[in-house]
Every structure is written in C-alpha cells, then in structure tokens.
Amino acid sequence: MTNLVMCAAQYCSVAGDINVNIDRHLHIMRRAVEHGVQFLLFPELSLTGYEPTLARALAQTPDAECLQPLRELAAQSGMTTVVGLPLRQPGSENILMGALVLAADGSQSVYTKQHLHPGEEAVFSAGEGGALVDIGAEQIALSVCADVTQASHAQAAAQAGADVYASSVLISHEGYARDTALLQGYASAHSMGVLMANHGGPSGGWACAGRSAFWSAGGRLVVSAPGTGDCLVIARRRQGVWQGEVVDCLEWQ
C-alpha cells in the first residue's frame, strides 16, 4: 500500500468576490504544499461562496483566464486541487454547481453536482458527475453536497473502483450529525476512505458547521477540525496506517 497525503481545505469564502477568493485559495494551496499534500479538496462553491442569487453573474467557463493562477500552481507544485464554483459550459446557458479538478500533471477536468437541494433548481441545473481522479495508485470519486444524501451515488463510486469518496459540501450545524453519519456509513459499507471539506463560516445565509473530516475505510474517524474557521484537515497514510493533523489559520497569516 502506497503512502498518501490528502487534505480538506476548510475555508471561509468571501461572498461574491471571486478574485479575492482566488488569491486566498493560492495562499492555502501553498501552505498545503508545505505539508506534503498530494490531493487538496475545497468546499462547495468555494471560489464564490454559496450565493445562488449571484451565481449567474459569477459563473465561469472551465477555461476562464481568471483561474489560470490556480492551474499553474497545481501543476508547478504537483498537487491535484479541486475548487468549487458556478460553471457555464461553452454553448450552454445552464449554470452548474461545479468542482474543477486542477491536476498535478497540468490537465484539467470537471465534476458537476448531480443532485440538487430543493430550491437550487431555480438557479442551477443538475450536472452529470465526472470521472474518477487518479492520485498515484489511488482513485478518488468526487461528490458535491446533496450528492451524498443519495446512497446510490456513493455505491456507484465504489462500484467504479473508488478508493476514496471526496465530498465538497456546505453543511450547517443542524445538518451536521445527519450528513456525517451518512459519510461515515459509506466509509464502512463500501470500504473506502471518505474526505469531507466544509465551509468554515457563514455562507449564503447558512451558519456552516466547519468540522471537516476524514474517515478511513471501515468508518474510523481519523481527523476532524474542532469547529469553524479556516484550516487544513490533513490525513496521512504511512505504511498502511492513517494519521491526522489539523493546521489552523494562524499558520496562513
């Protein structure tokens, strides 16, 4: 079994300001590189915040020039990074809740949220998912928030051969126990690791719970952020053994 370092970037988005969020993402990415991270996962809509009323104006195509610094840093550092934003595919007016995969080899792919929460359909269209992401010998399946409420989604990921189920989410204090029980259950039922990156502060009127986490295959909680705020939640596998570390925001300032 190979060594692996994965990280959930628990992040407090600046509402509606994609340029500021890009700068802050770059800073967080650099800090993650210092800790040897190979796969970095940001929360749902991390580059804009969860702001449905602003999503159409903020939506980007996957090849948008403003995202180039993120692509370059991912390739230069050799760290595959997944960022969240409203996406518009060329030739379509539909707005999708996207996870943009900036791969360590300089390539890029897209995952789009397949299952919408009630009310999101007023702005967003359901997406088509995306391919597994290769990190060395590991295959990582992506999911975005409401996707995890559908047991069939995690089951399909496992059947496709995923070693890790990585979920970019916005989870409130009220929904935290329910949603994390589902994620831990998937780790147990499908014998795959589960990585969850949550918002670390309010977004779109929601009081987000933070407490981003990683469960190893079998459902053991390896590491969790203690609460809200910006932090790196790092899971390291060395010689088949998982260990966790939380790096708080003081290291980024």
Rank of each mutant, 00 (worst) to 15 (best):
N19V: 10
N3W: 01
L232E: 05
V169L: 07
S92Y: 04
A209I: 08
A74E: 04
S224D: 02
L41K: 07
A154C: 05
A75D: 08
V37H: 03
V222K: 12
S167W: 04
T2L: 13
G205T: 05
A154S: 06
G218I: 00
L40C: 01
P43D: 08
V101I: 15
G36F: 07
R211D: 00
A156F: 10
A137I: 10
G129H: 11
L85I: 11
S152M: 08
R238I: 12
V14C: 08
L26P: 01
A75F: 13
N94P: 00
A103G: 00
A59V: 01
D248I: 08
G36I: 08
C231V: 07
M6R: 02
Q108D: 03
R178T: 13
G49L: 10
Q159C: 08
G185T: 01
F124D: 01
A57N: 09
Q10T: 08
G136P: 04
L47Y: 10
S191E: 14
A131F: 05
L4T: 07
H115N: 15
S13D: 06
I95P: 03
P90Y: 06
L45A: 09
I28C: 07
L170S: 05
R236G: 04
L250W: 06
E128I: 11
A177I: 13
E72T: 13
P43M: 13
L58V: 07
Y111M: 02
V148D: 10
C7F: 09
H25D: 00
A146L: 06
V233M: 01
A189E: 14
G119H: 12
Q10W: 02
T61M: 09
I28D: 03
R56E: 09
H173L: 09
R88W: 05
G210F: 04
S212F: 06
A59Y: 03
N3F: 02
I135W: 02
N94F: 11
I95K: 01
I18V: 15
G98I: 06
Q60T: 03
A235R: 07
G175A: 13
C231P: 07
R30E: 10
A213C: 15
V223C: 06
Q108W: 01
A57F: 04
E34R: 13
F42R: 02
F39N: 14
Q184E: 12
Q114Y: 06
M29H: 14
A15V: 03
S191I: 05
Q89S: 11
Q114G: 04
S125E: 11
H153N: 10
L41T: 04
V164P: 03
Q253E: 14
D17F: 06
I234S: 03
V101E: 05
A99D: 12
A141P: 04
T112G: 00
D63T: 07
R30C: 10
A9L: 13
Q159E: 14
A15Y: 00
L67I: 13
G98E: 01
Q243N: 12
G136W: 08
V123H: 10
Q253A: 13
Q150R: 15
S224Q: 15
S172F: 06
S224M: 14
H25E: 01
R31H: 10
A166Q: 09
A131M: 10
L132E: 03
V148Y: 10
A207D: 12
Q243L: 07
V133E: 09
R238S: 11
E65I: 14
A235F: 08
L58N: 05
Q155G: 02
S168M: 14
G84M: 07
